[in-house]
């Protein structure tokens, strides 16, 4: 466990890059439609693969582990293309054009049960597939209210972009990094809301713990599991995998509550390890859905 952790520069590289992709795709998506926009994504992805050697290397490194074989340039292109497609599809999801997608939901009864008990749930997501497809669950679960907890700088940018697409549908964003952030999450849970957090990425200030991920230790933030230990809400893993064409596959899975009520990082480790092991499972199921384009094991 390290605190503080060595500086990680994904905010500088990954987010600016993905914001450029996002702006570009919003424009394309609206004017050209999904099929034509996806065709245009191909040269865009090729450009990124050539101009971003660090992201290319990170993609190859991850895919080699997840595929169990060396990854080539075509794999990298497919990886970037999958990312581009999910970013593009956010525009349609936010525009309430869900009908164009074919969705399979696994474990929806978990959400139904929690809502029937009054709600209040921590959703552990990841930069794997599309978290945005959660909106499609909202159509069959009208009582589902989801807030997203994310770092303010990232949240502001993403919030602004989502607002530009459809102000009515932008999710409530809880900014992390302030003293009151977790109190806000507690209040949200008490009011029966679902609070989503992407539990796979850390910032320099986070306490982390090293957990085996594809056979090698990688740093994961302890925050989400410490919060679960302290507040003891139901904890559910959620991934929305892009399966090619217009198909998405949503998975909900209950995670075990931490044994200790103390939110110390050691007590939180079993929950993190369980999350990571299930995440690895979904990474093997859909390797090209992994959207952490930096050296995850650094």
């Amino acid at each position: 466990m390290n605190k503080p952790r060595a500086a990680i520069d994904w905010t500088a590289r990954g987010e600016i890059g993905s914001m450029a992709v996002l702006r570009c795709t919003v424009w394309l998506a609206r004017r050209l439609g999904r099929n034509f926009s996806r065709m245009l994504l191909l040269p865009v992805c090729l450009g990124f693969a050539v101009c971003w050697p660090a992201s290319r290397a990170a993609s190859k490194c991850f895919l080699a582990r997840a595929l169990g074989r060396p990854a080539g340039m075509l794999d990298v292109l497919k990886h970037f293309f999958t990312f581009g497609t999910t970013v593009l599809d956010r525009v349609y999801l936010l525009n309430d054009e869900a009908d164009r997608f074919e969705i399979t939901i696994h474990g929806e009864q978990i959400v139904t049960e929690i809502l029937a008990q009054g709600g209040g749930c921590l959703l552990f997501g990841a930069h794997h597939g599309s978290f945005e497809v959660l909106r499609l669950v909202g159509r069959s679960q009208p009582n589902l209210r989801v807030s997203l907890a994310m770092y303010e700088a990232t949240g502001r940018k993403i919030g602004a972009a989502l607002n530009a697409i459809n102000p009515h549908l932008a999710p409530l964003i809880i900014g992390l990094g302030t003293p009151g952030a977790m109190i806000e999450i507690r209040d949200c849970l008490e009011q029966g809301g679902f609070v989503g957090m992407l539990a796979d990425r850390t910032l320099a200030s986070d306490t982390t713990v090293k957990v085996d991920f594809f056979g090698a230790p990688a740093a994961f933030p302890t925050g989400p599991a410490r919060l679960a230990a302290l507040l003891r809400p139901p904890v559910v893993l959620m991934v929305g995998l892009f399966r090619g064409g217009n198909r998405y596959e949503i998975h909900f899975e209950r995670l075990a509550a931490p044994a200790s009520a103390r939110p110390d990082p050691e007590g939180a480790t079993p929950l993190i390890a369980q999350y990571v092991s299930r995440l690895e499972h979904y990474c093997r199921e859909a390797p090209y859905n992994w959207f952490n384009f930096f050296d995850f094991w650094a």
Partner: peptide, 15 residues
């Protein structure tokens, strides 16, 4: 209390 100084994070604040 938060951040520098005592080095507490927002989960400590919640506690």
């Amino acid at each position: 209390l938060f951040g520098e100084g005592l080095g507490l994070d927002s989960i400590d604040m919640l506690e």
